[in-house]
């Protein structure tokens, strides 16, 4: 066998083996074969004026055939869907608004109503950059905690990484009582 042929074979077979390994590794990642998952659509860049509140919409999708509890499930022990955001120190993250869930009942318990999200749902996050923050783009990170079920089984609670970017812009010049004393303000 020629050296050239061996090199060519290795060049093709090695990536093949690596591909196999990668496929195996991906199979073991959380959410791959351990039940359904929720996905997040890429968030659109939201522009927010510094010092003022802005609403950031975040879109999620529950895999078909499954449901997750809403933020306000009907029963005491059910795990609600909750979004938590870790914000930079100079951007205040306020209230997260959750949509109302849909009341459904399982085939085996037609009288018990569950309040759930299915398919697409949107959360909104209130953000307010502080007045002193530099006008720029900021990436915010968080996690969506949820617990999914289908009609016959439930899967352990999961946590979906969430990230979105906001663009902070300067607002219109603030009204200053005595502009004459500031060399930086020209009305």
């Amino acid at each position: 066998m020629s050296l050239k042929f061996m090199k060519a074979t290795l060049a093709v077979v090695l990536p093949g083996i690596l591909l196999g390994g990668a496929l195996f590794a991906s199979d073991e990642s959380p959410g791959s074969n351990k039940g359904p998952s929720v996905t997040m659509s890429p968030a659109v860049l939201t522009t927010v004026t510094r010092g003022k509140p802005g609403l950031v919409p975040l879109d999620f999708r529950v895999v078909k055939g499954f449901h997750i509890n809403s933020n306000r499930p009907n029963a005491e022990f059910l795990i609600p869907t909750v979004l938590s955001i870790e914000a930079p120190t100079d951007i205040v993250v306020g209230k997260v608004t959750y949509p109302p869930g849909e009341d459904i009942s399982l085939p085996f318990a037609p009288t018990d109503k569950l309040n759930v999200y299915t398919g697409d749902f949107q959360l909104t996050v209130l953000v307010r950059p502080l007045v002193g923050v530099a006008a720029s783009k900021y990436m915010l990170h968080g996690r969506l905690k949820y617990q999914a079920c289908d009609n016959a089984a439930c899967y352990p609670p999961k946590s979906l990484p969430v990230e979105f970017e906001i663009k902070v812009i300067k607002g219109p010049a603030a009204h200053v009582k005595n502009p004459g004393q500031s060399p930086h303000v020209h009305n």
């Binding site: 074979t9 093709v12 990536p15 196999g20 496929l23 195996f24």
Partner: peptide
């Protein structure tokens, strides 16, 4: 020496990868 067909090599690589995976 007879030159190997690259398609054969690719098929062998894919088969090995799939065997490993499954």
């Amino acid at each position: 020496m007879k030159k190997r067909d690259p398609v054969v090599i690719v098929v062998v690589a894919v088969v090995i990868a799939l065997m490993l995976f499954f």
